[in-house]
Design a protein around this nucleic acid. Structure first.
Length: 150
DNA sequence: GCCAACGTTGGC
DNA sequence: GCCAACGTTGGC
């Protein structure tokens, strides 16, 4: 079992939205690295840290898990969608997603500022300068440490 | 709102 | 294949 972190802007889709929906197809990912991780590396049951970005207090806010095998992101074929990709071939879809299922909301937000102060987390991808990946792997040791801060 | 960092696009 | 221009991300 592997561990991941996904970013979401709470104005667009928050942990409370996921708590309400219980499960959500993680659509709209238009970055090849992130797509490759969903397509090639995620397995049903993998753990996911849910992270709020571009907000007053960015940080880890909940736990989810991977809830489906990878499949084609339907929004790429929908001309009405902001994620529409006219260059994607329906016979060979460019964008792949998985479903995410709600597990729980943390008792508190664990803020980015706090994670940055922890030496043992200094090599986390999330904390690397200029990191813009919206999906990234998390080491088990980092996963355990972050959740121990709750 | 600013701006650094990055990924993608497209001309050559 | 290079690289400048551009758009986006995301913290502050």
């Amino acid at each position: 079992m592997a561990y991941w972190l996904v970013k979401s802007e709470p104005d667009a889709y928050s942990i409370d939205d996921l708590a309400r929906d219980r499960t959500e197809h993680w659509d709209g990912i238009r970055n090849y690295q992130a797509r490759n991780m969903m397509r090639d590396d995620m397995r049903v049951g993998d753990g996911v840290l849910f992270y709020h970005s571009s907000c007053a207090t960015p940080g880890v806010v909940g736990v989810a898990k991977v809830a489906s095998k990878p499949y084609a992101d339907p929004t790429q074929f929908d001309p009405e969608s902001r994620y529409y990709d006219p260059k994607s071939d329906p016979d060979d879809p460019r964008w792949i997603l998985v479903d995410m299922a709600f597990q729980r909301k943390l008792k508190r937000t664990i803020p980015l500022s706090e994670l940055k102060e922890i030496q043992a987390l200094s090599d986390m991808i999330l904390l690397r300068r200029g990191n813009r990946l919206s999906i990234m792997p998390v080491d088990k040791a980092h996963w355990d440490l972050i959740l121990s801060l709750e």
